[in-house]
Design a protein around this nucleic acid. Structure first.
Lengths: 221, 221
DNA sequence: CCAATAATTATACATATGTATAGACAATAA
DNA sequence: TTATTGTCTATACATATGTATAATTATTGG
């Protein structure tokens, strides 16, 4: 009769032995995200704090993560995956020539302002915290670099322009966009279009630079 | 007779009323610096910890700083000033044409690896922490941008090349160099030359890009 | 029903933190 | 000397943390 069986979090549908989990890893991750903010970084969250926010006893935390750091790594992977997906879609939508880079940046900035807290993890906290955490962020950055590098190469051959050290160019663009994004995070609404514009110009400089160097019109000291 | 009068820290040589200060702001800043490391950021230092390191009672801290955050801001200004001075000297030494940028980067990287802990503040912690702290770091970055911008303009007119939006170019270079520097901080000794090389190439892309765009050889969408 | 088992809580402990209060100390001014 | 005045320490308190241990709860298999 109790067909209620609320489809709670049947995280794995296989029948359970023992008490059913009332909370999931995801719940803890959500709780942690609610605590981070412009002046609160993951690395400063305490286990008890997260548990409190999630509404569980401190010790229950251990059922899901070894410590807050492990939670942070999971969050990084989640945030990175989401961003890559969004940008991937943007790339798909606009395969027409050079607008790829542009629309990628726009997608990036949209995600940046739509999912502030998630993006903060990737953009602002990659340089502090544990070794594991920094490594996780670095991993995400490298993913972006690789995808962007492929884009640049494809773009160059499509437009029949040269390209000098595409991997380095991709790296420069990624890092630049990420830092600029980080510092643009707390811009007021009205200044955002300008920020997008500036970032596009900067990226264009790099793209034009790598092309021009490849053309050999300028000496490479 | 007691001509000992060890020239301790006569922080201000004016005669004192009351007990002489046994510790100075600088001592506390030094103590704090000894505590930071690749896995320890200023924002996680506790007042008691710093006091312990400096060898004073926790409460004595208040004689010098309102809280650890205020100390952090002082450290940022110190680190920024030192770096600007080093780079300024490098710029002075090599005013011959384009090597200015190059030797600035080299000076930057030297400082980066020589004063790791100080640089960590500027490079890695600018995006977390209090509003005051972030503002202090941003201020230092802007100083760099302005000086670099002047350099770029001077360079362009000396070489009779054009330059497109020098302020943006300077900003891109500064931010890029700072992030790349940050992530190169924990590179092993043998990989550093390659890092310098890569960073120079990236900067060159931006410089060439801004020049090329100015020349009008490439359409600006 | 009962036993087994897994998830969660309750309680507790040692330790850390920021800071309030009061007193000790050292220097100057009289 | 003595009074005054800054600097520093000692002690204390309320509160926070990570985690160990044991008990409680809900679920499944028999």
């Amino acid at each position: 009769m109790n067909e209620i069986a609320t489809d709670e979090q049947r995280q794995s549908s296989r029948p359970h032995q023992g008490r059913r989990a009332v909370i999931s890893r995801e719940d803890l991750m959500v709780a942690a995200m609610q605590l981070v903010g412009p002046n609160r970084s993951i690395s400063t969250l305490s286990l008890r704090e997260v548990a409190r926010e999630a509404g569980i006893a401190p010790n229950s935390f251990y059922r899901h993560f070894r410590d807050v750091d492990e939670l942070a790594v999971s969050l990084i992977e989640q945030a990175g995956g989401a961003l890559r997906q969004v940008i991937g879609q943007a790339r798909h939508r606009a395969t027409s020539g050079r607008s790829v880079v542009r629309s990628s940046i726009e997608a990036f900035m949209e995600q940046l302002w739509g999912e502030q807290k998630y993006m903060q993890l990737l953009l602002r906290e990659g340089t502090v915290g544990s070794e594991a955490f920094k490594a996780a962020v670095e991993r995400q950055l490298v993913y972006f670099e690789e995808e962007l590098c492929a884009d640049l190469v494809r773009l160059a051959s499509a437009n029949e322009t040269g390209i000098y050290k595409p991997a380095l160019a991709a790296r420069a663009i990624t890092r630049l966009v990420f830092t600029m994004g980080a510092s643009s995070m707390d811009l007021p609404e009205e200044k955002r279009p300008q920020a997008v514009e500036d970032m596009s110009t900067m990226v264009r400089m790099i793209v034009v630079g790598t092309q021009t160097i490849a053309e050999g019109h300028i000496q490479v000291d």
